[in-house]
């Protein structure tokens, strides 16, 4: 088996999920200039709710093809997460829009904790397996393998990203979002309802996050109350890597990070003469984050910002 190609494929799958979550971070950052710390928890809720719905359906004896079950689960999870995203913004960010930067960050962290603990209350502390309803048939690609499911994940991610780009570039809502991100005050004067736009941003980002959460759960076959933390952090890194505030950047950054990570995990043993093993996979994202922020803080596709004195 070709390790290199295999790791690239794994990275592509992982990376498109990162990209989907990164879009949520980047949209919020673009419009409000803040990191939505609780976004990872939205992703986690998306996975948890979908699994719950599927389990309820199957235990009620309803027999449907796997993808349909997942779809039904998503139809519940997406609105739930949209509501959650909307609430997060209303509770944690809106009242603090003029407060010193630290305040919304702390409320967001507090809210993350609350959401995780709420998840423990509802779903417990243990890993929850994804119901075995999806085929894991593999496809052979030049000696490497990828499951049909993974192909589906990548395709769906790409479709969603294209859809989002169309919304942002072509619709009235998208125009208002772009205006708000350039200058909220001016956008407000031009008749854009800034509050609505901000809410819409959170809601859209949360919907994408919910779908991404389900993808993570199907890809790893499990979900967990703490899963949002690491995946959120990595997606944020992806957003920074691509240039925060830039949608195309989030996609590029996500895919790149996924590939860096899986290549890193595949080769770290060889690179360090066996000293470090693949359990160090998680440090790559942080290394990338630190390196980007030092050498190119505006990210790959971001515009350079001069510090005005």
């Amino acid at each position: 088996m070709d390790i290199f190609l295999q790791q690239i494929l794994n990275g592509l799958v992982l990376g498109s999920i990162y990209a989907l979550i990164a879009l949520g971070y980047t949209m919020v950052y673009g419009i409000m200039g803040l990191i939505n710390f609780a976004h990872g928890e939205v992703v986690m809720f998306g996975a948890m709710v979908t699994i719950t719905v599927i389990s309820l359906l199957t235990s009620a004896g309803i027999v449907l093809p796997g993808p349909i079950l997942v779809l039904i689960g998503l139809l519940v999870a997406i609105p739930a997460c949209m509501l959650l995203g909307f609430t997060i913004e209303r509770v944690a960010y809106r009242p603090l829009r003029n407060a010193p930067r630290l305040a919304p960050l702390i409320t967001a962290i507090g809210l993350s904790i609350v959401l995780q603990q709420a998840a423990i209350l509802i779903w417990g502390r243990n890993y929850i397996p994804f119901p075995p309803i999806l085929d894991h048939d593999t496809i052979d690609v030049f000696g490497a393998t990828i499951t049909q499911l993974q192909v589906g994940i990548v395709v769906l991610c790409l479709a969603l990203m294209v859809g989002l780009l169309i919304v942002v570039e072509k619709t009235k809502l998208g125009r208002a979002m772009r205006a708000t991100s350039q200058n909220p005050a001016v956008a407000g004067l031009m008749g854009v309802n800034v509050n609505t736009i901000i809410s819409a941003t959170f809601v859209i980002g949360s919907a994408l996050g919910a779908i991404a959460g389900v993808m993570v759960a199907t890809n790893y076959d499990q979900a967990h109350y703490y899963m949002g933390f690491m995946i959120g952090l990595k997606a944020f890194t992806a957003a920074v890597l691509g240039g925060i505030g830039n949608l195309g950047g989030a996609v590029a950054g996500g895919i790149l990070l996924g590939i860096i990570e899986s290549l890193g995990a595949g080769y770290i043993g060889d690179l360090t003469g066996g000293f470090l093993g693949s359990h160090y996979q998680d440090i790559f994202a942080f290394m990338v984050l630190i390196a980007v922020l030092i050498f190119r803080p505006s990210g790959l596709l971001g515009e350079k910002m001069a510090d005005r004195a």
């Binding site: 960050l105 920074v240 359990h279 998680d282 630190i290 922020l293 030092i294 803080p297």
Partner: peptide, 28 residues
């Protein structure tokens, strides 16, 4: 040293990452 130029939220995330790196090393 590497985070000298970072501000606010960015600094928070990078320091968080640093803490995690240290923990991953302790674990492994």
């Amino acid at each position: 040293t590497p985070v000298l130029k970072l501000k606010g939220d960015y600094l928070a995330i990078v320091t968080l990452g640093f803490g995690e790196i240290i923990r991953i090393f302790m674990n492994n």
